[in-house]
Design a protein around this nucleic acid. Structure first.
Lengths: 154, 154
DNA sequence: TACATCGTGGATATAGGATATCCAAAATTA
DNA sequence: TAATTTTGGATATCCTATATCCACGATGTA
């Protein structure tokens, strides 16, 4: 699995926020309950999203979270990097402190870099808005999957 | 980092084997020493490669390993799946035992599946032969990087 | 047959990171 | 001031990648 739970939480949170009326602030508690995310862990994720400039936080009563940008302006790349850091397929000479003996003759590195570049481009091409649109397509599926859904667990 | 050390070991091993004269068998010990891989761990990786039908093993004196296929017929997808299992970006309803409450309304899953498909296609399009070719381009770089290389560590 | 060589299989350890929890402090509102 | 809500950091837990070890199985050679 390449997508961590943390990233999953982040995406779900942003999707949830993106569905709210513009300007409305949402409590962390509400997000956590609605999305079945441990509150105490979500707190950490939210900080990262705030720090990355994707989400706005407000203190005190009537406080909470809201999107800083339009859902169509939040790419999966931004979200990925907010919680995971820069996307890297390999870790070799460009990571300080871990210089590899093979860097001077390593065709493999080039290959992974190329793939990495393609993957980043793909992530850049997809936004939270795209996910919201998909979600909206699902009411029909809901019926088809009712049977499965019975066994669902968080 | 997305590429595990295990996968790195597997790719380097296959590249190394691919550079040998056709039919020649190579000792696990030689691979390990040449590629700076812990022998006892490499043993495990080799088993996976054999099981996946990528490599041939022979017992006894004059035994060792050799490629079962031509380097140009070994794709990164095959190697990935040999050591990591099927490539999966997310783990939700299609993984037995972990059914997610959101499957019936999860646009995110669709998105990741699409990306996963693209990534698998990319991996299918690259072979060990491609890496060997890259390696061969490097003798020049060797000079350029001599300085860095001095500090190399395994 | 006896023996050396070499991979196989499985059990087991270790280390590091992902995941999760908790609490006191800071900011805001009323 | 009191209530609300996020923030920051310290810490715990769990899981997986990585690594190690050893007895066993298979093969070639004398």
């Amino acid at each position: 699995m390449i997508i961590s739970k943390t990233l999953d939480y982040a995406v779900r949170t942003l999707t949830y926020l993106g569905k709210q009326p513009s300007g409305k602030t949402i409590l962390m508690k509400e997000i956590a309950e609605n999305q079945k995310i441990p509150v105490s862990y979500l707190a950490k994720v939210m900080r990262q999203l705030v720090k990355a400039g994707i989400v706005i936080s407000e203190y005190g009563p009537n406080g909470g979270y809201s999107l800083k940008k339009n859902p169509s302006e939040i790419t999966l790349r931004q979200v990925y990097e907010a919680v995971e850091g820069e996307l890297k397929m390999i870790e070799c000479f460009d990571t300080p402190g871990s210089i590899c003996v093979f860097t001077s003759q390593c065709g493999q590195a080039d290959i992974w870099y190329e793939i990495e570049t393609k993957l980043v481009k793909i992530l850049e091409g997809i936004t939270i808005q795209d996910i919201i649109i998909r979600d909206d397509l699902y009411p029909q599926k809901l019926n088809l999957n009712k049977q499965e859904n019975k066994y669902a667990n968080p």
